[in-house]
Amino acid sequence: MQIVVDLARCQGYAQCVFLAPQAFELHGEEALLCHPAVPDEQRERVRQAAAACPVQAILLGEAVSRGAR
């Protein structure tokens, strides 16, 4: 599973950072950085983080598979 954050929409509420600290972190006061590739054992926490985003800026999904034709 992969993460992408719409940072034009993100307002730095940081709910994701509290819920899934291994996937999301703040750089400084409000610049959000994420680890886009989610290990299996973190999926549930990351799903909760995405659901809790007040501005719904987090998208989760599968990548296009490598070698796609």
Binding site: Q2, A37, E62, A63, V64
Partner: peptide
């Protein structure tokens, strides 16, 4: 150095 360059694949909607 926190994320490998090949790990930023976009999720599909």
């Amino acid at each position: 150095g926190e994320v490998p360059a090949n790990a930023t694949a976009l999720p599909m909607r």
